[in-house]
Design a binder for these strands. Structure first.
Lengths: 191, 191
DNA sequence: ACCTGAACACCGTTCAAGT
DNA sequence: ACCTGAACACCGTTCAAGT
């Protein structure tokens, strides 16, 4: 359960704490991000934490920023390499749905448990809707229509994430999920 | 800020605490539901709380149950009185979007901050998707198609809630929102 | 510069004692 | 049966003291 502490560097960086916090959120939600609980995982004392961060809120801010870089910027960068807009969109859903735990952070941010999360959430949302607008523009929709489609696609996307989290057995899995997504994308991209 | 305490009944019921907790979540999120902070609002001591509830988790359970009754059962009951399926669906979106704070509890439940919330979330989700499946069946879709449409509609619904919470200025407001919803419902109900 | 360990505050929880 | 107030535990935060 306890992650092995790297022996290669004696000194800790803020990123070490943020990464530990990110893992902790995926495992046990926001409330599991406790300085006292994290300290032994990174191999330091509670007091040490307050050298790197002003408080727990600052840690969460750094954690959300880390997630933003890994899960929005990096993915959009990959997708921008795909010329065909329909394939680009399909790939996005494939990436997003490949990890059953994806959406955990989005859920935490949306719950408004922490104001600093809202800033990141706004930035990520804007970025993603922009990306989707680009996809629909490339599909030949005029700007206003592309924007509307992008918005609807993103709500479908968010809703699917949310539904998967609650795990009601309503969201299809495996091949059925692929079929479902294919059908949804058909509906969304039809002129 | 502090709600006036009713003088008409000296004794408190669990519902008094649950209602106070529900209000508190809407105002300040889950973390604002603190026994110590709630006690003066209902006009009792912390100790009194533990006569009515085993712990904070039990209060949250009761709070979620209260919300379920008010926001799912009551609304579905109203909607079931509308014969025309398209109007029924439109009315659902109207109710859901009329309160800008609607979706707060859904967000809290989805964040999995509390396991007991998941039970309620699953029940509510199942109930709502069943309701939507009925709408699409009434529109003439066969069972499997009705189910798929219901699922897609519910993800659009959840996503819209979620987006509104983050308040990015991406979701249209006022008449534009009505137009947007109308367009979305058109897309969703088209055979 | 970076870290430790003790101290304190806050809030969840318990409980003996009151009505 | 229902409530109070004091006590304790847990974790966020501070800080004087160490390297």
């Amino acid at each position: 359960m306890v992650a092995a502490v790297s022996k290669t560097k004696a000194r800790l960086t803020p990123e070490d704490w943020a990464q530990a916090a990110l893992d902790s959120i995926a495992e046990g939600g926001l409330s599991s991000v406790a300085v006292e609980a994290l300290a032994p995982k990174v191999g330091a004392s509670k007091g040490s934490f307050y050298w790197h961060f002003q408080d727990r809120a600052a840690l969460l801010e750094a954690t959300f920023a880390l997630w933003e870089k890994a899960k929005t910027e990096a993915i959009i960068e990959e997708l921008d390499g795909i010329a065909d807009p329909r394939r680009r969109l399909r790939r996005l859903f494939a990436i997003a749905l490949s990890n059953p735990r994806a959406g955990r952070i989005e859920a935490v941010l949306s719950s408004q448990a922490h104001p600093q999360g809202m800033t990141v959430l706004r930035r990520v949302t804007t970025r993603r809707v922009e990306f989707l607008t680009g996809v629909f523009a490339d599909l030949g929709f005029d700007p206003a229509a592309a924007r509307r489609r992008a918005l609807m696609t993103y709500t479908v996307f968010l809703g699917l994430f949310s539904l998967r989290q609650s795990d009601v057995g309503i969201v299809p899995t495996g091949a059925a999920l692929d079929d479902y997504v294919e059908g949804v994308l058909d509906t969304l991209t039809r002129p």
